[in-house]
């Protein structure tokens, strides 16, 4: 075989391998960046609605009876969530994490977080349900002194923790281990209408 031709094949082969490796790395990096941005947007959407709801706990309701239920992964409260909506003065809102896996994503860790909103609580049929996929959702309740409380009328601060993961893995190892991008939000909110 011609030595020149063989050398060309060797160098060309190395170049080809190099290009393929580079292409693979570029592809992974793009997938990771894209999934991270999508995950951050996903969290941001949930947080925007959550903050709006929590800041309006008790609004148009006075300082009593703001909470109907307050548990670790579910809360039901009254408050005027949007002005001039519905015929009732206040809305009834529920945020609850279910143990059901979210089948809309390929991520096996995703659970369904449900937000149920009724702007006319006197008519239960008007309830509207929204679903989000999250990895974790936790709520803690505190009184005015910052102590954990389970008494509904004593709750003044609500601490919420949300963890979301990307819908698709950004990296799958040879042994099948999948890596998902995670984004996290945690805040302790003092609803203006619960302090006086």
């Amino acid at each position: 075989m011609n030595l020149g031709l063989a050398t060309t094949y060797i160098i060309g082969g190395l170049m080809l391998l190099s290009i393929l490796a580079y292409n693979y790395s570029l592809f992974n990096s793009t997938v990771e960046t894209t999934s991270s941005v999508i995950t951050q947007n996903k969290l941001d959407n949930i947080v925007s609605i959550l903050q709006n709801d929590l800041n309006r706990i008790g609004y148009d309701r006075g300082v009593s009876d703001a909470f109907v239920m307050a548990e670790d992964s579910a809360v039901i409260f009254r408050g005027n969530i949007f002005d001039n909506d519905g015929s009732d003065d206040f809305d009834l809102v529920e945020w609850a994490l279910t143990s059901d896996p979210d089948t809309n994503t390929t991520n096996p860790n995703d659970l369904v977080l449900i937000r149920t909103w009724n702007q006319t609580p006197s008519i239960p049929a008007n309830e509207i349900e929204y679903q989000y996929s999250v990895r974790d959702f936790e709520i803690n309740y505190y009184d005015i002194d910052g102590n954990v409380t389970a008494t509904l009328d004593d709750i003044v601060q609500v601490e919420v923790e949300v963890l979301v993961e990307s819908n698709e893995p950004y990296l799958t190892k040879k042994d099948g281990t999948e890596f998902y991008y995670r984004s996290y939000w945690k805040r302790r909110i003092v609803a203006n209408n619960l302090i006086y």
Binding site: S29, E32, T33, S36, V37, Q40, I144, G146, V156, Q157, S183, Y184, W185, K186, R187, R188, I189, V190, N192, I195
Partner: peptide
């Protein structure tokens, strides 16, 4: 650089939350 920006934005997000928590305590 893009990956660093994404990670930094997550860190900034959490840092802002922490500062907001202090403000919330002042509201009380």
């Amino acid at each position: 650089s893009t990956s660093e920006t994404v990670i930094r934005s997550d860190v900034e997000y959490r840092t802002i939350m922490r500062a907001q928590d202090v403000i919330e305590q002042v509201k009380l």
